[in-house]
Simulated scan of single mutants.
Amino acid sequence: MDGQQTMERYLDKTMYENNEQQKETVNGRMRSVRIGCSYEDTSITLGFPVQEWQANRGGMMHGGMICTAFDITAAAIARFCAGENYAPTISLDVKYIRPVQIGDQLIVTAKATAAGKRITQIVCEARSKNTGKLAATAASVYMNVDTTKEKR
Rank of each mutant, 00 (worst) to 15 (best):
M1A: 11
G3T: 13
E8L: 02
E8S: 04
R9K: 15
Y10D: 06
Y10C: 09
Y10T: 11
K13T: 10
T14W: 09
Y16A: 05
E17V: 14
E17G: 11
E17K: 15
E20G: 05
Q22Y: 13
Q22N: 14
K23C: 03
E24H: 05
T25C: 11
N27T: 13
G28N: 01
R29L: 08
R29V: 06
R31E: 01
G36S: 05
C37Q: 11
Y39S: 15
E40T: 12
D41N: 13
T42E: 04
S43H: 12
S43A: 02
T45E: 02
L46P: 07
L46N: 04
G47R: 10
G47Y: 05
Q51V: 07
W53Y: 15
Q54E: 05
N56E: 11
R57D: 15
R57K: 10
G59Y: 10
M60D: 14
G63K: 05
G63D: 06
G64R: 05
M65H: 06
I66N: 00
I66T: 03
I66A: 05
C67H: 12
T68R: 01
A69C: 07
D71P: 08
T73I: 02
A75G: 15
A75N: 09
A75K: 03
I77D: 00
I77P: 01
I77T: 00
R79C: 08
R79I: 02
F80A: 04
A82D: 00
E84V: 14
N85S: 09
N85P: 13
P88K: 03
P88E: 10
T89D: 10
T89H: 00
T89E: 06
T89L: 06
S91K: 13
D93G: 12
I97F: 06
P99T: 00
P99R: 01
V100R: 02
V100F: 01
Q101D: 15
Q101C: 15
Q101T: 13
G103D: 08
D104V: 11
Q105E: 15
L106N: 04
I107W: 00
I107T: 02
A110P: 11
A110V: 04
K111D: 07
A112S: 15
T113W: 01
T113K: 12
A115P: 11
A115L: 03
G116E: 07
K117S: 14
R118G: 04
R118Q: 05
R118M: 08
R118W: 05
T120V: 02
Q121D: 08
I122V: 06
I122S: 03
C124R: 03
E125T: 10
S128Y: 04
S128W: 12
S128D: 04
N130V: 15
N130M: 14
A135S: 10
A136F: 03
T137L: 04
A138M: 12
S140L: 13
S140F: 10
S140K: 02
S140D: 06
Y142L: 09
M143H: 09
M143V: 13
V145D: 12
T147C: 06
T148A: 12
T148L: 11
K149R: 11
K151T: 09
K151S: 12
R152A: 10
